[in-house]
Design a protein around this nucleic acid. Structure first.
Lengths: 126, 126
DNA sequence: TCAAACCCTCACATCGGTGTGAAGGTCAAG
DNA sequence: CTTGACCTTCACACCGATGTGAGGGTTTGA
């Protein structure tokens, strides 16, 4: 698929798809005319990237994480230097922190909304 | 406590504490000499702020969320305009998305690390 | 064959969070 | 009284993600 379709299906500006490629997060081969040609799987991949970016991870880290997600079960034990492993462990910890922070805050919002709801519908269907 | 202590106890540059105040996330009263004077609770508050920032939320949103977290059980039903409520619901959804994305990715990393570990210690204590 | 709708690269701009430092006031200890 | 460690405000700089648009090629359909 070409960049326009990928853009539409992922809700991502073309500009950013090119940027992700430049950052090494996304690969596309090229049609003879130079147009990018994306395989189907890119849709999910782009959504992953956007999700992680929205969660505060920089492209540099996402680049290291993506292979772990994509390799469908088949780990290439080829590359992982002890250094890479350390980075991954580090980043996993950071992600756990984020998750906990978000969970706490989300629950607080839920409680708040719930309380407001109760206060607004004072002693209704009870 | 003064800004230096708060900075040290939260691992946050003074610069940012002032920035958070400027953004309306943090309040300090002033000593007669103009120095900021923070109450004890600010330590937790700052950590919350940093956690949410690291999770990709902008100060504008954090500002709306913090009151829900701080109000210890006692909701001020005073302010919440229907508009504010809508924003909160929206943001809660976004946070849920983030949480799910992070969970998926973290689990993928865990699986990966686990697999690498198994591959590196080939048929050990078994 | 021409217009519209794609695509390309390149480059400059914006925005939010953060770094850094200048210029100066306050306070405690020697 | 001075020195050093704090604090103040202000301003400019940086970095990563994103917006925008110029200048130009390709494809499709009227």
């Amino acid at each position: 698929m070409r960049i326009g379709e990928l853009s539409e299906r992922t809700g991502t500006p073309r500009r950013l798809l090119r940027y992700y490629e430049e950052q090494g997060l996304l690969a596309a081969d090229r049609a003879p005319n130079g147009y990018r040609d994306y395989p189907e799987g890119c849709v999910d991949r782009v959504l992953q990237i956007r999700g992680l970016l929205a969660s505060g991870l920089p492209t540099r880290i996402i680049k290291q994480i993506l292979p772990c997600i994509n390799d469908p079960r088949a780990i290439h034990v080829s590359d992982p230097t002890p250094e890479t492993i350390a980075t991954l462990e580090d980043e996993r910890r950071r992600m756990t922190d984020r998750i906990e922070c978000l969970l706490r805050s989300r629950d607080a919002i839920s409680n708040y909304l719930e309380a407001v709801r109760r206060a607004q519908r004072p002693t209704a269907a009870r």
